[in-house]
Design a protein around this nucleic acid. Sequence first.
DNA 1: GCCCGGCCATGACATTCGTCAGGTCGAGAC
DNA 2: GTCTCGACCTGACGAATGTCATGGCCGGGC
Lengths: 203, 203
Amino acid sequence: MSDVIRVVLAEDQGMVRGAFAQLLDLEPDISVVATAADGDAALRAVREHRPDVLLTDIEMPGASGLDLAARLADEPDAPRVVVVTTFARSGYLRRALDHGVAGYVLKDAPIDRLADAVRRVHAGGRVIDPELAVAAWEGTDPMTDREREVLRLAAEGLPNAEIAARLHLAEGTVRNYLSTVIAKLGVRNRVEAARLATERGWL
Amino acid sequence: MSDVIRVVLAEDQGMVRGAFAQLLDLEPDISVVATAADGDAALRAVREHRPDVLLTDIEMPGASGLDLAARLADEPDAPRVVVVTTFARSGYLRRALDHGVAGYVLKDAPIDRLADAVRRVHAGGRVIDPELAVAAWEGTDPMTDREREVLRLAAEGLPNAEIAARLHLAEGTVRNYLSTVIAKLGVRNRVEAARLATERGWL
DNA sequence: GCCCGGCCATGACATTCGTCAGGTCGAGAC
DNA sequence: GTCTCGACCTGACGAATGTCATGGCCGGGC
């Protein structure tokens, strides 16, 4: 193993990707060997360059950063994964940890944390942004798979009848799922339910 | 006037703010004299430092970048404003131009565009991201002020009764506004209306 | 002055949504 | 075996939402 940490960077916003890549490359012990603008390109880059660390956003076109982590989890010789994201959503953190992610850093943090996280993760450590300790106690997703599925479609603005058609359910069933979701989340209607679930990273 | 362009940078995400500031400062002819994490801090920084150019995000806590542009528009000796934002929303661009913004750049663009835009705007030019030429033809906001106001509350998940109470209207009136909005946008219900209007930058 | 068009506002009516009281099925406890 | 529990599914009923027909108000043509 060489003494330079080889990094692949996945981030969809061009300016942010460019800026992070340039700054990381300025660090003498870090080298950005490839960048990718979406999840699929990131996967190809990892396969090709076999980096030590994959630094990835969550919300990207194609495969999300969480999908990436999941797919790499059971590969031999996989890179350590650091997620860099905008939102302190407890659901995202939980899923990231489930997929064996080694670092979870918020874009809100100062820029030095980035190189820092890369180094500590490469050294075998774990890095979780302290802000997340709080968000983690927003509680855990109380929805069943079916309920989540229905809410996801409702959040897009589909009327119950169409949701029912797509899932091959009776319309009353759809209404009932939404009703239990609304009760579980302690809100007043589907719109609030969708907002809350999105905010928590449950959709 | 000195030959170094003095810039104030407003951007709420710490990492992005730090990265952009460092990279701009590396340019010999640009100096970042202050950074701000929200709209109000940005306004204070501009008043204090009197920069040549204000580089600002749109979506920030406190005053948005568009609010900033509006407030600075009629001040004497105001900086030229460049908006750097994530979304190619036609409504944002239109409002930015209405407020006399000199540059509108997308975070999707390559990082060199940033310093580039600062220079060209400081030289008296205008910079509009080419991607926006397309988005501008998504059409113009067909809603009246009242309709927009009602839709904004509906998008938060408030039931009609509460929207009516807040705006001192009859519940039937609220229903009617939402109905016309739904018709104007060509969608099926309030949820789709809210999604579409948000996507276009009309809320 | 008169008419017209746009915005604002309303109540009555039809449709959609949310709640409730059930019923089926399978997995695990005893 | 059977009991219990939770996930899944359903129809009936009252509550919220969406539609329509209508009227007041104001500012701009003519």
